[in-house]
Nucleic acid binder design. Structure first.
Lengths: 245, 245
DNA sequence: CGAGCAGTTGATTTTTATCAAGTAGCGTGG
DNA sequence: CCACGCTACTTGATAAAAATCAACTGCTCG
């Protein structure tokens, strides 16, 4: 096991190095233009409609993906259909790193997605020429590992209220990083998807949302948007400091 | 987010590249001897008794660790003391990668531990000379990420029985890889630690263990050892295929 | 405008946590 | 070597949290 220790604060995603939207694919701003062009040429651009599949569990893991716009859900299934969403991918996020020969998760578009796909063999060739790329990817992977550990704490030990509060704050932090309005978060996913991400049911997510609404902590706006009216209260709830739960 | 796809099979840990016991510190067998020597010189060997702390949350993240023997628990705490163990580290595992300036977890010896500690600055200098090292670490990190996603599925969607069955099979797989007897697993951790790893309570772990015993799936042996008498039945329980739960 | 799906709310059940009371294994010291 | 005491573990009774089952509401998009 490798245990990383990055603070899960804003630092990582605000790194312009890792913003992939401006150029077709860039993992580090310091990469030689030449390398970027090579990888760009070896890549294809994909467009997916909501519900369409990017990768399926068990498929041969021949490609890497880089999401350029939209949102992707990555999840695992149990035999009887229980689903755990292990993450949502946004613009700039990568999919399919790692060395196994099969994918071990499903990835589907949540809303219309554009992604950049390229062969692993090309990626490996490029890595040989651009070690900085590997360094940037290692940093990202460690940051992801840290986020995964936070999610384990959430799934293993937090109450439904704490889970939802944490989730909303995470989304708000992401929106703020992306330059959006603070305390106004858009939910691109359904209650069922939130539930499958937080290890709850739709009903519980709905009930807890209502409770937050009743208490004046959040307000529901049109177009699946939530306004955080009392950020401090939400933060207290997320960390379990609120005695009233 | 980076989503990796490695199968969580034996491949990784059986890789002699990553076995750190033979030499003080080696992450890849192909590393230049020179680099190894340099890192070895820059390192200190630590010995810890059970319960002693390797890193504390909030400490300045100045060092990397490599466990050479024993078992370490890595965990996160909530304000009221709820604990989630995010992983157990065994010989050859690394701790403290990642770029944050503070550790965001606690790491303590579970049984007597020896570890190798070295400054991050040394590590960074070495990376510049040995890009293969980074490559090996990226592979590991992605593998860890995959394991973390499996754990999210466990914590978010599996029943107590499924969690314990999965855990025992994981330990058995690890023991087999290490060349131990198949179907005989040693538990270096207490029920409370298993519970905090699986998102349960000690009582629930104890009850589920008893149920497995009663059903003839496992047998308790002296010295915290469990014999898996019906591996197939345990596997069925782990994946939720057993209708009787 | 209306059909269908997402979401909400309520009643009840189930699972697991909590509280409580033992029991057993183990290391220590007499 | 045995007795003691500690801690880990087990088991039982009860409570709490969330799941399940069910009905209804209200967006959103043809």
């Amino acid at each position: 096991m490798i245990a990383c220790h990055a603070r899960s604060d804003a630092a990582f995603n605000s790194d312009p190095c890792l913003n992939c939207q401006a150029r077709q694919l860039s993992v580090c701003g310091s990469l030689a233009e030449d390398g970027l062009r090579r990888l760009g040429q070896a890549s294809e651009t994909l467009s997916l409609q909501p519900g369409e599949t990017l990768v399926r569990e068990g498929d041969t893991a021949s490609h890497l993906f880089n999401i350029t716009s939209g949102v992707v859900r990555v999840y695992k299934l149990l035999a009887d259909g229980r689903r755990q969403i292990v993450g949502f991918l946004f613009a700039g996020d990568m999919l399919g790193l790692a060395t196994g020969d099969r994918y071990v998760f499903e990835a589907e578009a949540l809303e219309p997605v554009t992604a950049c796909r390229f062969r692993k063999s090309e990626y490996k060739a490029l890595l040989r020429e651009l070690p900085e790329l590997e360094s940037a990817l290692l940093d990202r992977a460690c940051h992801e590992l840290q986020a995964a550990q936070d999610q384990m704490l959430l799934l293993g030990r937090k109450t439904a209220m704490e889970r939802l509060a944490t989730f909303l704050l995470d989304l708000a932090a992401r929106a703020r990083r992306a330059g959006g309005p603070p305390d106004l978060v858009h939910l691109p996913m359904t209650r069922a998807e939130i539930a499958d991400y937080l290890g709850l049911t739709t009903e519980t997510v709905s009930r807890v949302t209502s409770r937050l609404k009743t208490r004046g902590v959040i307000r529901l706006r049109p177009h699946n948007t939530i306004e955080i009216t009392r950020p401090a209260a939400l933060a207290a709830l997320a960390s379990g400091e609120d005695p009233a739960g």
